[in-house]
């Protein structure tokens, strides 16, 4: 067993873990943070995407011991006060989900994109989400939601209505 200290969604944990324990199993089975789903178990689908020290990672492809000393943010840490982020609101308003299974990973991957590139083009959104699969094939509204969130965070004073309109135009 290996000792780890890890902060997840703002809470510090100390644990003894087997070195082979995957981060996603640690989050779900040990900490009970089941908001992060396991989709494919093969590093393909991105459903288990979380942030590790501020960047997106596939938590099925990280060992819990590799997260020792690090800070993890899961989808459950996005709205600690219950107040949704613009990205979460945009997913809700643009209906960027069907079954919802890929949604946590989509949110975490999109957050990563908007941090590096606050004003992405539709093509850049699609490229940034290439590691996240939606088995419902609901990509159109996911892309619209990310573009809409980018506009809303823009600070240019765009209203929700205006951003909604231009997000529609993008794929019209």
């Amino acid at each position: 067993m290996t000792h780890i200290s890890v902060t997840v969604d703002g809470t510090a944990y100390e644990d003894e873990v087997e070195p082979r324990l995957l981060l996603v199993h640690y989050l779900r089975d040990r900490l009970g943070l089941t908001g992060t789903p396991i989709g494919c178990d093969t590093s393909n689908c991105g459903a288990c995407t979380v942030e590790l020290d501020g960047v997106s990672v596939k938590s099925c492809t990280v060992l819990a011991v590799q997260a020792d000393g690090s800070e993890v943010t899961t989808v459950q840490g996005l709205a600690p006060d219950g107040e949704w982020t613009p990205l979460q609101r945009a997913f809700h308003e643009r209906h960027a989900l069907q079954c919802g299974y890929c949604t946590p990973g989509m949110l975490m991957a999109a957050r990563d994109l908007l941090r590096e590139n606050p004003h992405p083009s539709p093509e850049e959104v699609r490229r940034a989400l290439e590691g996240n699969l939606c088995r419902c094939t609901g990509y159109q509204n996911i892309v619209r939601a990310v573009l809409s969130a980018a506009e809303e965070s823009d600070g240019s004073g765009a209203t929700g209505e205006r951003s909604a309109a231009s997000a529609q135009e993008v794929t019209a």
Binding site: G46, V55, V57, T61, L113
Partner: peptide, 9 residues
Amino acid sequence: VADPAVRHR
């Protein structure tokens, strides 16, 4: 190579 999350690691 792969996708952004994989490229981070």
